[in-house]
């Protein structure tokens, strides 16, 4: 019998909670690590598709992080990228079929962007950087944390674009009719793709203004 009893770490220890909290602000996947921009911007003209995509990414990320973390000792390093892609791609196919079955309209709006979750660098990046060298439980938390950080930015961008661009939130009119009678107009520019980039630019500006550590040296 070994004299040393290995101390078990509690499931939600401070270290583990950090895995969830950090990606939401200090190492946010979109505004700090610059991962996963591709699919993030195109779906944010309305709030609904943004929420659905965030949830899909959350599911794919949590599950593939756990799977890769379980398999990590059996994957030959030379072909690890292909193994990772296959795991992610199978998860994405499942998510895509579920979306088609239950929320067909949204799945049509998302069009190719569900498929593009496969090459969403955020997932590959976390698998490569975290899941390949950590146990399943921390990997799961890391996946959830990063997907939350990603989802929050998506939802903020989509909220402002839908509010200013169409005067609605989740397709419900929030700007009162009276405003329109006084000559208020929806800003059509917000619906157009380039405004997504500018909105993210402004979010980065605000975030870095309050979190001085993130400011880049020239």
């Amino acid at each position: 019998m070994s004299a040393e009893v290995k101390e078990r770490e509690p499931l939600f220890s401070a270290k583990n909670m950090k895995l969830i909290k950090n990606p939401i602000n200090l190492s946010n996947p979109i505004t700090v690590q610059v991962l996963g921009i591709c699919s993030a911007l195109a779906v944010t003209a309305k709030l609904m598709p943004a929420i659905v995509l965030s949830i899909s990414v959350l599911v794919v990320m949590a599950v593939s992080n756990v799977l890769i973390s379980l398999l990590r000792n059996g994957i030959p390093p030379r072909i690890r990228i292909i193994v990772q892609l296959v795991v992610i791609a199978s998860m994405v196919i499942l998510v895509d079929q579920v979306l088609k079955a239950f929320v067909y309209d949204v799945s049509k709006q998302l069009s190719v962007f569900v498929g593009l979750i496969i090459t969403n660098c955020i997932i590959m990046g976390r698998l490569e950087a975290f899941a390949m060298s950590n146990k399943p439980w921390p990997a799961f938390l890391d996946g959830i944390g990063n997907a939350l950080g990603y989802g929050i930015i998506l939802i903020i961008v989509a909220f402002f674009r839908e509010l200013l661009g169409s005067g609605t939130v989740l397709d419900m009119q929030v700007i009162p009719e009276g405003f329109y009678e006084f000559g208020y107009k929806n800003n059509g520019l917000m619906i157009l793709p380039p405004m997504a980039l500018i909105t993210v630019g402004v979010i980065i500006w605000v975030q870095r203004y309050y979190t001085r550590d993130l400011i880049e040296k020239n």
Partner: peptide, 9 residues
């Protein structure tokens, strides 16, 4: 605060 990434966006 805009330097680097922000201004690129």
């Amino acid at each position: 605060a805009l330097r680097g990434l922000g201004i690129t966006f």
